[in-house]
Write a protein that binds this DNA or RNA. Structure first.
Lengths: 214, 214
DNA sequence: TGTACATCAGTGAACGCGCGTTCACTGATGTAC
DNA sequence: TGTACATCAGTGAACGCGCGTTCACTGATGTAC
């Protein structure tokens, strides 16, 4: 096994993962093609064999982010069949966890850094699939009286707004320490969700003690 | 009146406004000290007479953003005394309008581009003043049954999350065209708010026809 | 099985650019006497 | 009122840096016969 084969084998995916690693280390501002190449152990021109330009790499990283979210969402949906309130809460929590665990990747995934979805069909496809998961979730919640009736498209926007806003405010350090020090992240999320939810949320059931103060 | 007096007179504020202009034209990525100086009609080293470094200028721009939000918030509060639901909706709308009218300025204002509030007392002060306005609003809403009872601090986080998330998703182009083309911005905002609100919102009262399709 | 050749992935030097920051300077202003 | 001088705001050249992208190249792989 030689240490440095001339041909990498799977450089395309290696570059995507290198990009994610850079995002984790240096944040969204620190993402450059040259760093990505260095991280992947390859010369700085090598990425151009796999990506037309920086934008295209970013689109691939965003697509990967949507894929990870998709995996989390479907896992939650399938784990709690017939329990829309639980699905709602755990889906929101999965989104929050992704944001807190990989802030840079999260921001790229939901930023306009990639403007033209039209040019990246894989990305547009994943975005739509995730929208449809939320759509189904919202419909089930409405059917059980967990959410108000009404156009589910609007309800998705409302639900997504509150969770996305919550994560964004946390990541940007906007939530006053006065509040964030007194409650755990999951507690705060559940407090946000209780405001939109039409059935009361029992804190003992949904915010186990293990999460208090987290 | 000579065209180019050697001394500007009010360069500090001129630089802040130049920065806001750059943000409007080139967005948050395009903000550089050199462009700001050029925009203000001054050599690129001149800003250092007024700001220690780029961070400090950004902090001043963010402070100005919070000040503008503060002006909008207090105006709304004083225009609708004794009507917390109206105050809630118009405060949310004022926030949304600021975001849509000045996306770059909005993003800088609510980003972690300036990390250490501790070092910018004016900024921290404005942030706290705006938090307190929201705090008062939420308490009035709770007292009238517009919002659920509970720790007002948590309710502020929930309310702010939904509005901030809504604006962020709009600015990042994440709201599917399928939805955004069918509803006006104000309609969507009010749909989001109806989900948190405990008193129903009459669309005819709060989303006048003039705003439909906007 | 062996050879010629096309194809492909990765290299390293080079390009031009805009950036934040510094530094010695200069022009204007204000104050002390 | 006039002069000397300290203070201050703005200038322009220069620094070193990292960036995206290009280009001629080279090493490895795969295929045709």
């Amino acid at each position: 096994m030689q240490q440095k084969p001339y041909h990498h084998g799977d450089l395309k995916n290696a570059l995507i993962n290198a990009g994610i690693a850079i995002l984790a280390r240096d944040g969204i501002e620190g993402l450059s093609l040259r760093k990505v190449a260095l991280e992947a152990g390859v010369s700085h021109a090598a990425p151009y064999a796999h990506f037309a330009d920086k934008q295209t790499l970013i689109a691939a990283i965003a697509t990967d982010g949507h894929r990870k979210i998709n995996a989390r969402f479907t896992e939650v949906r399938d784990r709690h069949p017939g329990d829309p309130l639980r699905q709602l809460i755990e889906t929101a929590w999965a989104y929050t966890e992704f944001g807190l665990e990989e802030p840079g990747h999260f921001k790229v995934t939901y930023s306009s850094a990639v403007t033209k979805e039209r040019d990246y069909p894989d990305l547009a496809d994943m975005i739509e699939r995730n929208f449809e998961i939320l759509h189904g979730l919202v419909e089930r919640c409405q059917a059980k009286g967990v959410l108000l009736p009404g156009d589910p498209d609007l309800a998705v926007v409302g639900l997504w707004s509150i969770v996305h806003g919550f994560v964004s405010l946390l990541l940007e350090g906007q939530v006053s320490h006065n509040v964030a020090n007194r409650y755990g992240t999951r507690e705060m999320l559940i407090a946000c969700l209780s405001q939109v939810t039409r059935s009361p949320i029992d804190p003992l059931e949904f915010a186990p003690l293990a999460d208090r103060g987290r």
